[in-house]
Amino acid sequence: MRVLVVSTGAANLASVLAGLRRAGAEPGLVDSADTLLSAERLVLPGVGAFGAAATSLQAAGLWSALRERLDAGRPTLGICLGLQLWAEGSEESPGVLGLGLLPGLARRLPDGVRVPQLGWNWVEPGRNCQLLQPGYASYANSYALRESPEGWAAAWTTHGEPFIAAVERGPQLACQFHPELSGPWGQALLTRWLGAR
């Protein structure tokens, strides 16, 4: 299965590629808006700052192709910041627009808990989830989405306050956690996404 990964200068690109390989895919890298649009499956990973990632996607000429692909419902997986970029924006980078597929802003995790959230937390899928199953997933985030998105099936977790662990709609899946770092549970999720229509 040919899967293309968007390189946003993402720090853990190697982990994403290795995870996809273990799940049976043959990952390559996106090198243009055309390949981004035509890829059978696309992964948008991401770590680092919201503003820097959005700016780098725009500078690379990939932003509008991403919007087009997501609007068309094509198979796409967002990971961590890759999920937050689907929202309207982030408190991390005020004034920078997100892709606007999901409502609300990514907001900073509350005071009183360890931030960044580093480690394993429970994923509780809503009843209409198809790909997401209950289990522990590995997170590394300081920001999160809190709004329940209409038209999407959502899974939730709690660190100080409840937030979105992941959303799915057909072959589109976006996770706040890192499936590529979530052991056998995460690998099984990647495998289901690779087969999702």
Binding site: A18, S138, S182, G183, P184
Partner: peptide
Amino acid sequence: VEAVRAVLGIPL
């Protein structure tokens, strides 16, 4: 690190 990454599915 490369060789470990290929088999390791948890954070490193």
